[in-house]
Design a protein around this nucleic acid. Structure first.
Lengths: 165, 165
DNA sequence: ACCTGAACACCGTTCAAGT
DNA sequence: ACCTGAACACCGTTCAAGT
C-alpha cells in the first residue's frame, strides 16, 4: 500500500484521530484534509480498515519502544504504559478495542511489544494478567469511568504492589 | 421517562443490542422492531442516549447482583464478573466504554455494584486496581485481542493469585 | 395523543464518467 | 493516472403536517 499518497493518507489520518478523536476519522474528512473527495481516496488506499491497520501498527511499535526504554522494573513499565496511553488516548483505544489484525501486521510486532512485560513476570499467564490490569486502568481512565475523586496514582501503586511478589 | 411505550423501547433495544451488537442498536432499527418509524420514537424517549442510560442502569444492577451472590471470596467474585460479562458482551461494553452518566443513574447504584469488591480488598485503591484488572481481562477477551492460543483461565488464575496476599 | 414523510447533516463505498 | 458527481444503503434528529 505505501505509495507516496498512501503514506500521506496515514499521516493525515493520524493527525485527525489524535487531534479530534475517532469521529473525526472519516473518509470524507480525511479526503477533504488532503484536498480531494472521498471516492478518490480509494485509488490510494484499499479501505478505511487498511488505514486503521497502519495506525495500529505504528502505535504498537511506539508503545513497545516506550516500554522497552523502561525495561526491567515493573513500576517503570507500568508508568511507561500509562504515559504512552494517556499521551495518545484515541490511538490507544483504536489499538485495543477491536480484534488485532495479526495477518496484516509486520511479523514479530505483537511479540516485541509484549516482550518487556514477559521479562518482568513469572510466566506468560502472569504477563497477560499484568497487561490486562494495566489496560483496564488506562481504558477506564480514558473513558471517564472512575469517580471524579478517584486517586488513580494510588490505584496504579496498588496494581504494582499486587504484582510484586 | 418510563411510560408504557418507553419501557417497551428499552426492552426491545436490549434485545437488539444483545442479539446483534452495537451496530443493530439504531433508532431506525428499534422503531421498525416496534412497528413505527424513527421520528415517532422521540414521542416516547428523549433521545438515544436516554435509552443507553436505561440499559446501563439495568446492566449495573444485574452485574452487581451477580457479584453479590458470590460475596466474600476473591476467586468467586472474579468468576462471577467474567461470567456475567461474557454472557452479555455487548451490554458489558456499552456499560464500560463511555463515561458513566452518574446524574441520570439511580442513587447508590454505582456504590452497590462496587461493594462486593471493596469487601474483599484492603482499601479503595486496591479495589480499583482489582476492578480494572478484571475489566481489562474481560474487555481484551471480548475484543478478541489475545492470541488465539492464550490460556485465559490461567490468566484469570494469575490475576486472582496476584491480589491474594 | 400519536404517527408520518421530508429534510438536514452526516457515514463507507461503488461506479460510470471526465481530464 | 487521477479525480469527480451521483448514487446506494445507512446514521441521529427536527419539524411541519396529518389523523
Amino acid at each position: 500500500m505505501p505509495e507516496a499518497r498512501a503514506a500521506e493518507a496515514v499521516r493525515v489520518a493520524r493527525g485527525l484521530l489524535e487531534a479530534e478523536g475517532e469521529a473525526a476519522l472519516s473518509m470524507r474528512r480525511l479526503a477533504a484534509a488532503m484536498g480531494m473527495r472521498a471516492p478518490s481516496l480509494y485509488k490510494h488506499v484499499p479501505d478505511k480498515a487498511a488505514l486503521e491497520v497502519a495506525l495500529i501498527a505504528a502505535g504498537l511499535a511506539e508503545a513497545g519502544a516506550a516500554m522497552d526504554a523502561r525495561r526491567g522494573s515493573l513500576a517503570g513499565l507500568a508508568a511507561a504504559y500509562r504515559e504512552w496511553a494517556t499521551a495518545h488516548p484515541h490511538l490507544y483505544l483504536l489499538m485495543t478495542e477491536r480484534p488485532l489484525p495479526r495477518e496484516r501486521l509486520p511479523a514479530g510486532l505483537e511479540a516485541s511489544a509484549a516482550a518487556p512485560l514477559l521479562e518482568v513476570t513469572r510466566d506468560e499467564h502472569e504477563a497477560r494478567a499484568l497487561w490486562a490490569a494495566a489496560h483496564g486502568l488506562v481504558a477506564l481512565e480514558l473513558h471517564d469511568r472512575f469517580p471524579p475523586d478517584a486517586d488513580l496514582d494510588a490505584a496504579w501503586a496498588a496494581l504494582v504492589a499486587a504484582f510484586t511478589r
